[in-house]
Nucleic acid binder design. Structure first.
Length: 214
DNA sequence: GCGACAG
DNA sequence: ATCTTGTCGC
């Protein structure tokens, strides 16, 4: 799958609608993940975007990392987030010396107005299993999950479950998990809990966030 | 119509 | 996203 550069908002929306059917939301996905990549993008005052990828092994040790700093090509538009962040992330991914078995993206997957957020887009482009983990709610409605780590409630959009508000730390604000590509929602939440044994955000995303500010 | 809106 | 000190709590 190749990257299309949209020139307008209408074009970007059309690309999302066209690629949406290509996202695999039926596969369970691997239960055992060897290498997990966390992805995030940092912004600078000069209109520069820095894509960062950090790869962790099953013990959560860093085994690889890569960054790519470029000029932003698309403005920030809610719902079209991916067109701003994907270019530097693809460049950073191409600089890895290993191939991760899962992409953990900072944002949404299928919990999206057109059911095609950043995690779906990156999953389809790379062909790799991908999930989205966001820090705030964006679409749909959900109840507040119980206080204990592991508790969750469904995020419902137009009568459909599109993700979960998942508590990764007892007494701390939940994160918002949704499917991206080639992984079930159950599996995605299990992976997020495995990857976030100590802090609210999964370790791969925390480290990528830190790296993107460099 | 108006405001809100992943990062 | 980013601009930013101290402060409450485990």
């Amino acid at each position: 799958m190749t990257w299309d550069e949209p020139a307008t908002v209408a074009e970007a929306e059309a690309i999302q609608s066209r690629l949406r059917p290509l996202a695999d939301l039926s596969s369970e996905g691997p239960a055992e993940i060897g290498l997990t990549a966390g992805l995030d993008v940092g912004y600078a005052e000069d209109g520069t975007v820095t894509g960062a990828v950090v790869v962790l092994d099953a013990s959560l040790n860093v085994v690889d990392r890569a960054v790519a700093r470029e000029r932003a090509r698309f403005p920030y538009v809610p719902g079209l987030f991916a067109f701003r962040e994907i270019p530097p992330l693809l460049t950073a991914l191409s600089r890895l010396s290993v191939t991760p078995g899962l992409l953990v993206c900072d944002g949404y997957g299928v919990a999206h107005p057109r059911r095609f957020g950043l995690a779906c887009h990156l999953g389809v482009l790379t062909g790799l299993p991908a999930i989205g983990v966001a820090k705030t709610a964006f679409v749909g409605t959900h109840e507040t999950p119980a206080d204990e780590r592991g508790s969750w409630t469904p995020i419902v959009l137009d009568g459909e479950t599109v993700g979960r508000a998942l508590r990764t730390r007892t007494g701390v604000k939940p994160v918002y998990v949704s499917q991206g590509h080639r992984m079930s929602l159950d599996n995605a939440c299990a992976q997020v809990l495995r990857l976030a044994p100590e802090f609210r955000l999964p370790e791969p995303i925390r480290l990528a966030d830190r790296l993107s500010r460099t």
